Computed example of a mutant assay.
Amino acid sequence: MSQERTVSFKSSPITLVGPELKVGDSAPDFTLNKNLLETSSLKDFAGKVKLVSVVPSIDTGVCDAQTRRFNEEASKLGENVAILTVSADLPFAQARWCAAAGVDRVFLLSDYKENSFGKDYGVFIKEFHLDMRAIFVIDTNDRIAYIEVLNEMTEHPNYEAAIEAVKNLL
Rank of each mutant, 00 (worst) to 15 (best):
123 V>S: 01
40 S>L: 09
139 D>Q: 02
46 A>R: 11
95 A>S: 13
116 S>D: 14
112 Y>T: 13
26 S>N: 12
82 A>H: 02
106 V>H: 01
29 D>S: 10
81 V>L: 06
119 K>Q: 12
23 V>P: 00
47 G>H: 07
128 F>C: 10
78 G>I: 02
66 Q>G: 11
94 Q>R: 08
121 Y>V: 00
35 N>L: 09
107 F>Y: 13
34 K>S: 08
99 A>G: 15
141 N>R: 10
67 T>C: 14
120 D>F: 05
68 R>V: 15
39 T>N: 06
25 D>P: 00
139 D>S: 07
88 A>M: 12
87 S>Q: 05
64 D>E: 11
31 T>N: 12
29 D>M: 04
79 E>P: 07
103 V>M: 05
142 D>H: 09
137 V>T: 06
127 E>R: 11
33 N>Q: 13
21 L>G: 03
40 S>E: 05
28 P>T: 05
77 L>W: 10
79 E>T: 09
119 K>I: 09
36 L>Y: 15
104 D>T: 15
133 R>F: 08
121 Y>M: 00
70 F>N: 01
136 F>I: 05
111 D>V: 07
45 F>P: 04
82 A>I: 06
52 V>I: 10
79 E>A: 14
72 E>R: 12
114 E>H: 14
43 K>S: 13
125 I>S: 01
61 G>F: 08
124 F>N: 04
110 S>N: 07
101 A>I: 07
133 R>Y: 08
130 L>K: 11
89 D>I: 01
112 Y>Q: 13
139 D>A: 07
35 N>K: 14
43 K>W: 10
30 F>V: 02
55 V>Y: 04
135 I>D: 03
105 R>D: 12
41 S>T: 13
123 V>K: 04
24 G>S: 02
91 P>W: 06
93 A>L: 10
123 V>Y: 00
114 E>N: 14
68 R>N: 15
139 D>M: 05
32 L>R: 02
65 A>G: 13
19 P>Y: 00
36 L>W: 15
91 P>V: 11
47 G>W: 06
53 S>C: 14
83 I>D: 00
115 N>Y: 11
21 L>C: 05
136 F>G: 00
108 L>F: 12
86 V>E: 01
60 T>W: 04
78 G>V: 05
140 T>P: 09
32 L>M: 06
30 F>L: 07
86 V>Q: 00
59 D>A: 09
83 I>W: 00
63 C>K: 03
73 E>W: 07
57 S>D: 11
19 P>Q: 00
114 E>S: 15
66 Q>N: 14
55 V>P: 03
61 G>M: 10
51 L>T: 03
75 S>N: 14
97 W>I: 08
71 N>Q: 11
129 H>V: 15
23 V>Q: 04
54 V>I: 08
92 F>L: 13
69 R>I: 14
48 K>H: 08
18 G>N: 04
87 S>Y: 04
50 K>Y: 06
134 A>R: 03
58 I>P: 05
26 S>H: 10
136 F>K: 02
42 L>D: 05
40 S>W: 05
69 R>G: 14
112 Y>L: 14
108 L>S: 11
109 L>N: 03
56 P>F: 04
133 R>K: 08
28 P>C: 10
118 G>R: 00
